[in-house]
Write a protein that binds this DNA or RNA. Structure first.
Lengths: 250, 250
DNA sequence: TGTCAAAAGTACACGGCGTTTCCTCAACGC
DNA sequence: GCGTTGAGGAAACGCCGTGTACTTTTGACA
């Protein structure tokens, strides 16, 4: 029912047939694009909480009502933004990783980590939208493109860490498969590369390290302290690519 | 001028003399306390963005106007909350640290780190208020009790890291005093313990590691993955207390 | 070219928020 | 006791937001 009466969720393209887009559908896609673009700009300017259908409509020179032809509710719009931004992050990370030949696993991990910070600095509000406080009153769906992107990011890091560190690497603390969430295990074990619990735990710790410095920087807590967060971050990430957790001596 | 005409900022106590509080001032202090308590509860229930004078007044069975006798604007109320929460965190960290004898520097660092996570889990919305997205439309003052608490936290960690690791410990990356913000240096160098740039950089990296895992957990990104974040966190923190960045083998 | 459905405009209901103005009233200090 | 002071209520102002009937325009297609 909703698929017929309600507006589409924006990026779901085209008619049921596989024909090329008609003029109408092209216009629709363009307008949808414009809406999300402006929403991104609003978010970048005043934070995720500032996303509002009325504000977008004002900036587009349209009536608020018009937006409802494209997104049934504000939450649908936010979901579309989260989906797009999440995919953008996952793409950026995979692209950076793949720019380093597979014969250099440590280099791939370093590239992945550096790309995380660079993406976050280039899209600070996107980073906040994904990892920070959600928009007030918004509850994300627990599946959909955003969840898929989160899976790509998580599993991607798992593989990188697994390739850098030998299986059964001691990582401090004893971990068992039962330490992880079942739904996560299902995704992990679909991965062709066999992972050990220790490596998965290490990957989470690596994620935490990178996420911590990036978060501190994005939220401005490093700015008051450190002139050059990049050097700090690089020191941390180079430590990760060596033996597990070890900081190489200069 | 404002000190006479405007309402007080809440916790500034008493008359100019040192006399015991009068009945009026006692009632005032109690009401102020009730306001901040309810604000905390509101924040805990629906996030920092949900703090509203009207909501507090509703819950207190008063009109919105009454609040203005205690806090001139909503931002003043938020500032009072941030100040209180920041001090609470700094207190908790120092208390945990001091519960371990000074002869065990590594143990003190571990206690500090564990206390950080425990405080955050006990006060998740307080953690968000300090380290996450600020309340929409709120800009914190760059001095005051909150800044002082931030200084206590940062410098406290510096000292702990310095005590655990020998001076001039290689930490990966070459750091110089010029890599840090001048205002931060002024505070650091007032510290009796002499610190090296490398140690300060290492302390920031340690902060990032702890902050990363805690943030991921508080914002729910670890929950979908890991059954037992405590074990993960403990593994990370025990690694910190050993040689710099090294993960001890089990 | 005419019919139909989608898109967009108009107007509005409903609620929230911070803040202010005016006024009442009880408590305090003398 | 009594003027003064501060706490607090009532109501309003102005702004913002989401979402909803109803109506007009406009593109698609026969």
């Amino acid at each position: 029912m909703s698929a017929r009466t309600g507006p589409t969720t924006g990026t779901t393209a085209g008619p049921t047939t596989g024909q090329p887009l008609s003029r109408r559908e092209r216009l629709r896609a363009e307008t949808t694009r414009e809406i999300t673009t402006i929403a991104m700009r609003q978010m970048a300017a005043e934070g995720p909480g500032a996303i509002s259908l009325r504000g977008i409509a004002r900036e587009m020179g349209m009536t608020a009502r018009a937006i409802y032809s494209y997104f049934a509710t504000r939450d649908d719009l936010v979901t579309a933004l989260v989906d797009e931004i999440s995919a953008s992050l996952a793409d950026a990370l995979e692209k950076a990783r793949d720019a380093v030949p597979a014969t250099d696993p440590a280099g791939r991990l370093v590239a992945w980590g550096l790309a995380l910070r660079e993406w976050a600095l280039a899209n600070p509000e996107g980073f906040r939208l994904i990892y920070g406080d959600p928009v007030p009153g918004y509850t994300p769906p627990d599946d959909g493109p955003a969840a898929e992107a989160a899976r790509r990011i998580c599993c991607g890091l798992n593989r990188l860490v697994a390739e850098v560190h030998a299986p059964n690497t001691p990582v401090g603390g004893l971990f068992d498969w039962s330490d992880f969430a079942p739904s996560y295990l299902a995704k992990i074990q679909a991965d062709p590369l066999s992972l050990s619990p220790s490596v998965v735990a290490l990957a989470l710790r690596v994620w935490g390290r990178l996420h911590g410095l990036v978060t501190l920087e994005i939220y401005g807590h490093l700015r008051a302290v450190c002139n050059d967060p990049a050097t700090l971050y690089r020191a941390e990430i180079l430590g990760l690519a060596g033996s597990p957790g070890t900081v190489p001596t200069p």
